[in-house]
Design a protein around this nucleic acid. Structure first.
Length: 299
DNA sequence: AATATCGACAACCGCGGAAAT
DNA sequence: AATTTCCGCGGTTGTCGATAT
């Protein structure tokens, strides 16, 4: 018994932090830095568990923290990132300097409540209706998911639109969609068909179309909206039909990725190095860039 | 005027996995 | 190699002032 190491001290304090406690924690961390939270309470003279100290520091006392309302740019980023990765708050927060996962999570939860306000569609459980219509483009002729034209009408208060309110058409072709069940396939398909995303956020699939080329004839392409942004993976062992299908589409911007040379290709197009040499993270950042509209136009 | 509800933040909890023993 | 401790994450609850009833 007594295994909860962080709380097995007799007099652990909980609840809101007092200014005195804050001061103690700040003084200790700023002189010693942090590394081992479990020993912080004792050394700093705090009747708290290490976990509580960590939380207080990370979410509030940290000097480089950013306070105040989210800017419009931050909001857009949160929305598009959430559409891509779901409730991975820490991941989303890593793209917003000075913001914490807790803050973003709180923001999202209250925001979603606001949007879901009176979702009373009395007639029936609303049909999929993921209509992607007449997307508009910015001055660079790129799709801009966040202009008013690309937003659903204000009347559309479905749960779906509340989660992902922008019509942001993205697509990809790839083989072996579904291989993630076997633990393999670190390519595009596993990103899109990630079980977390798939189950957490159905709306993603109405905005992100993945087509399995292993069961597809390039003469019979699925109907895509003009100007969609897409991504194709052409591995050395890859299926050439991926590229074939892709090139027949009329898209505003695209990028190729390959198993390992993918970064070189990306670099060539974008003129900068993105991420490390892990294809999975490279893929993530590519998807996020597409969602953010900073996708290069290259055909 | 008293009380219920809301909204924003703040903090806690259990869990999974990493690290340490 | 097995067990314990620790850390970070995401879901959830708690706090409290503002607003509504």
């Amino acid at each position: 018994m007594g295994h909860h190491s962080c709380c097995n001290q007799q007099k652990v304090k909980r609840g809101l932090w007092s200014p005195e406690e804050d001061e103690k924690l700040i003084r200790y961390i700023s002189t010693h830095g942090y590394g081992c939270w479990s020993e912080v309470p004792e050394k700093a003279g705090l009747q708290r568990c290490g976990k509580s100290c960590r939380l207080r520091w990370i979410n509030y006392l940290r000097p480089d923290i950013r306070r105040g309302r989210f800017t419009q740019e931050e909001e857009k980023l949160i929305i598009s990132l959430h559409a891509m990765v779901g409730n991975r708050w820490a991941h989303i927060a890593s793209h917003l300097p000075g913001r914490t996962d807790n803050e973003i999570k709180n923001y999202w939860n209250s925001w979603i409540k606001k949007k879901i306000r009176k979702p009373t569609t009395p007639s029936s459980t609303s049909p999929p209706s993921a209509e992607l219509i007449n997307p508009s483009y910015n001055s660079n002729n790129q799709f801009d998911a966040f202009t008013s034209q690309n937003m659903p009408p204000a009347s559309a208060t479905s749960h779906q639109d509340a989660i992902f309110p922008y019509h942001c058409p993205l697509f990809m072709f790839d083989t072996s969609i579904g291989d993630h069940n076997n633990g393999g396939n670190i390519g595009l398909s596993s990103e899109v068909w990630n079980p977390n995303i798939q189950h957490q956020d159905q709306a993603v699939h109405n905005s992100f179309f993945a087509y399995n080329t292993s069961s597809m004839d390039s003469n019979y392409l699925p109907p895509l909206v003009d100007g969609m942004a897409g991504m194709v993976q052409i591995g050395e062992d890859g299926d050439p039909i991926n590229r074939e299908c892709f090139e027949k589409q009329d898209v505003s911007g695209w990028v190729e990725t390959q198993n390992y040379p993918s970064l070189l290709i990306w670099e060539q197009i974008q003129g900068e190095l993105v991420g490390d040499h892990d294809l999975s993270s490279t893929t993530s950042s590519n998807i996020e860039r597409m969602a953010a509209g900073s996708f290069p136009s290259s055909q």
